[in-house]
Design a protein around this nucleic acid. Structure first.
Length: 740
DNA sequence: GAGCACTGC
């Protein structure tokens, strides 16, 4: 159990919060309807007060009140505050649960948790029998897990007769959101009532710029522009701190440098050492920054000095900085979008949505009236910025989500009640991948392997490799690798060129220590070397490794090990024997999870993927396989990065024979035929027909050699099949469309 | 010969 931390004194007594005068009506509304939408801006007190009102009104007699949050910090801090208000010890009546930290007990009646935690609970107990009320908070953020929970709750509990069969007492569902989209949510839950709580925010006046129009998406332009605007604010506006929203680490560092330069030119004294211009303290803020450096952001500036924080979107929701009165909004964000046509994720700079822009502006009105300076034009706002941010469920890989749904008994994953439907081809692609991993069978039913796979909080491919290793008894090789691959990048790449060289040298030494040329083995080596070191944090510093990331890899490894041990106690856990070369074990296991990510050397340094897209890819310079020619003709890789070229990262050489039997499977299933499998509407007749067609197709592509030849042929015919070219082309088209 | 926004189980 975690220790509760001391909280700062709050300026608002619960009774003065806007929600207080609605207390009785709110409790009644929950009593009356199985579903209720509650809307209210930040500061209305709904997150902390509603659960207390329901607790007081006796809703905990039969079960717990569960409240979900999209972020860990929010779940923990809100629980701390409520425990304090209810004058109880955190972990007793009021508790929280997040990954790696369960602070609840038998007595816990009000439980705050992340949405991912509740989803895991649904998997174990689909009728949520422990709960009398489930409150989904921050629904407007549309996190993947919250969206899935919305559909599940609607599915299971919107039919009262069906719900009664599953539970001994009714479940109340409350959905809390910012004011936007409340009609849509109400319609989703059978036109359930909406309860509006007025917010308590200060007005923020917004102005548009004249510089960034629809055609100015190039990178340096908006960086220069935010710097100019921020300095204008500093010179001409009254006291109050500035928050600048930018896209990423490098842009932020660049903007901070420019701020010093320009500030100097406009006759300000400044000191490079502690990064202050007279009257202006400039602070960068982004997620991968060391935590002690992040903490500096929250300290009030010395008297007479204005603070200017240059941040990523992390400052929009995750962190609140006091004293911010002015916002400078670049209008852009970096977003990871899944591209099903090339089968990969692409990180790109895109315009933010109007609702996101309002969210950013709102950060200036937390304690008093504020101002928001948008660097983009009114035209850009109208023509380029969408109303709402596309929800995560419509732009990410759905493989793991679809497996979860299938395991929950949702067979028709296409007609599942999504608040916003993902594109059908995204769903079909996920089904195809699950079929290739043997997680579902040809009829779309979850296999025994799939049931084991869903237990792991990992990407299905990685889980597949892990289970293979467990069945061969060599899980100690794969557990650390899986953990390392599911945390943020552990290799530090410093900004300074000299230090960059030093870091690269250390990293190369770690790769060479493995005695092989294999990036996965390097990860294993880093994990074990650090773990067995006397002073692990010093070891990390010396080797340019992120200690924070490695620490979380240690926790993940422990968690995965526990899950695996539990599953291995099941009688039907598969076991296999291995009579090959022991030194090949790690790579052989990896093959069973990464056979969808196989590439073959095409010409010189160029590799060609074997996944049916036949993309031309390059080994990333950070890999130990970079410019290693020789006999390394077949490789598997963990991920793809599209920048100046299409790069594969975390690469490992394999033998053709290891994937030979698996490759045809990649081409066996026509995605669109899986559509009927997805709905599980296949009749016996259709099945027989399909089977025979598939058999004929398999005969045609009798061997992997044929598949290979076919792909090679396509590659030579189609010289612009380079993923980068397609990516750029699409981007151009998109921009042209936007410009129109 | 190079660049990775933010969450979450």
């Amino acid at each position: 159990m975690s220790k509760p931390t001391r909280l700062a004194v709050k300026d608002s007594e619960p009774k003065h919060l806007p929600i207080y005068q609605h207390k009785n009506k709110l409790v009644q509304a929950v009593r009356k309807s199985p579903f209720l939408i509650v809307t209210g801006e930040t500061g209305s007190g709904k997150t902390t007060q509603l659960p207390q009102y329901l607790h007081e009104a006796g809703f905990c007699k039969n079960g717990k009140i569960g409240i979900t949050q999209p972020r860990r910090v929010a779940a923990i801090t809100v629980a701390q505050r409520v425990a304090q208000e209810m004058k109880c010890t955190l972990g007793r009546e009021v508790g929280y649960q997040v990954r790696f930290d369960d602070c609840t007990s038998q007595e816990t009646a009000v439980k705050y948790m992340t949405d991912g935690c509740l989803l895991r609970e649904v998997l174990a107990d689909p009728s949520l029998s422990q709960y009398s009320v489930v409150i989904l908070d921050e629904v407007h953020e549309r996190s993947l897990n919250t969206d899935i929970l919305l559909g599940l709750l609607k599915n299971v509990f919107s039919d009262p007769a069906e719900a009664a069969k599953r539970r001994s007492f009714p479940l109340k569902v409350v959905v809390m959101s910012a004011t936007l989209e409340s009609d849509k949510l109400s319609a989703f839950f059978n036109n359930c009532p909406v309860f509006e709580i007025p917010g308590r925010v200060f007005p923020v006046t917004c102005t548009f710029g004249s510089a960034v129009g629809p055609k100015d998406v190039e990178r340096n332009f908006y960086v220069k522009e935010v710097v100019k605007v921020a300095l204008d604010v500093h010179i001409s506006e009254k006291a109050g701190d500035i928050l600048v929203f930018l896209t990423g680490q490098s842009e932020i560092e660049h903007a901070c440098d420019l701020l010093f330069e320009k500030a100097e030119n406009i006759d300000y004294r400044y000191d490079v050492q502690d990064r202050t211009v007279e009257g202006l303290l400039i602070l960068p803020l982004y997620g991968s920054m060391p935590t002690d450096q992040q903490r500096q952001i929250f300290q009030p500036p010395p008297p007479g000095i204005r603070k200017c924080v240059v941040a990523t979107n992390i400052a929009a929701t995750s962190l609140t900085i006091n004293g911010i009165k002015y916002i400078v909004d670049s209008g852009f964000v970096k977003q990871l979008n899944h591209n099903s046509r090339v089968g990969m994720d692409v990180l790109e700079v895109v315009p933010i949505s109007k609702s996101e822009a309002q969210q950013r502006a709102g950060r200036a009105g937390r304690t008093s009236a504020g101002k928001c300076f948008r660097i983009y034009t009114k035209e850009f706002w109208e023509k380029c910025m969408p109303e709402y941010t596309i929800p995560e469920i419509q732009r990410t890989s759905l493989t793991a989500v679809i497996l979860t749904l299938k395991c929950l008994g949702v067979h028709d994953v296409i007609r599942f009640p999504y608040l916003d439907c993902p594109e059908e081809r995204f769903i079909l692609e996920a089904l195809k991948q699950l079929y290739q991993f043997d997680a579902i069978d040809r009829r779309g039913k979850v296999t025994k392997l799939g049931e084991l796979m869903v237990e792991f909080p990992l990407h299905p491919g990685l889980t597949r490799a892990l289970l293979k290793s467990a069945s061969l008894g060599c899980q100690d090789l794969l557990l650390p690798v899986a953990a390392m691959l599911s945390v943020e990048n552990i290799f530090i790449r410093p900004g300074h060129p000299d230090k960059q060289k030093e870091a690269a040298k250390k990293h190369r030494a770690l790769a060479e220590k493995t005695g092989s040329i294999n990036d996965f083995a390097t990860l294993l080596c880093v994990f074990n070397s650090c773990k067995s070191s006397d002073r692990p944090s010093a070891w990390c510093k010396e080797n340019w490794i992120h200690w924070r990331a490695l620490k979380s890899a240690f926790s993940v490894e422990t968690q995965l090990r526990e899950i695996l041990l539990r599953l291995q106690q099941r009688r039907d856990f598969p076991t296999e024997s291995f009579d090959g070369n022991k030194s090949e074990l790690l790579r052989r296991c990896l093959c069973s999870g990464y056979f969808t990510n196989v590439a073959r050397r095409s010409v010189g340094k160029v590799f060609c993927t074997m996944d049916g897209h036949g993309s031309m890819v390059h080994v990333h310079p950070s890999s130990s396989l970079f410019e290693q020619e020789a006999e390394l003709n077949w490789v598997i890789f963990h991920d793809v990065l599209v920048t100046s070229k299409t790069y594969i990262r975390t690469v490992c050489p394999i033998r053709y024979e290891w994937v030979k039997d698996l490759l045809p499977k990649l081409h066996e299933v026509d995605v669109y035929e899986l559509s009927s499998v997805a709905r599980q509407e296949v009749t016996e007749d259709e099945m027989v027909k399909w089977e025979s067609k598939e058999a004929a197709k398999r005969q045609q592509e009798a061997s992997a050699e044929d598949v290979m030849k076919k792909l090679e042929k396509r590659n030579t015919e189609d010289s612009v099949s380079d993923a980068r070219a397609r990516y750029l082309q699409r981007k151009q088209q998109r921009e042209q469309r936007k410009a129109l």
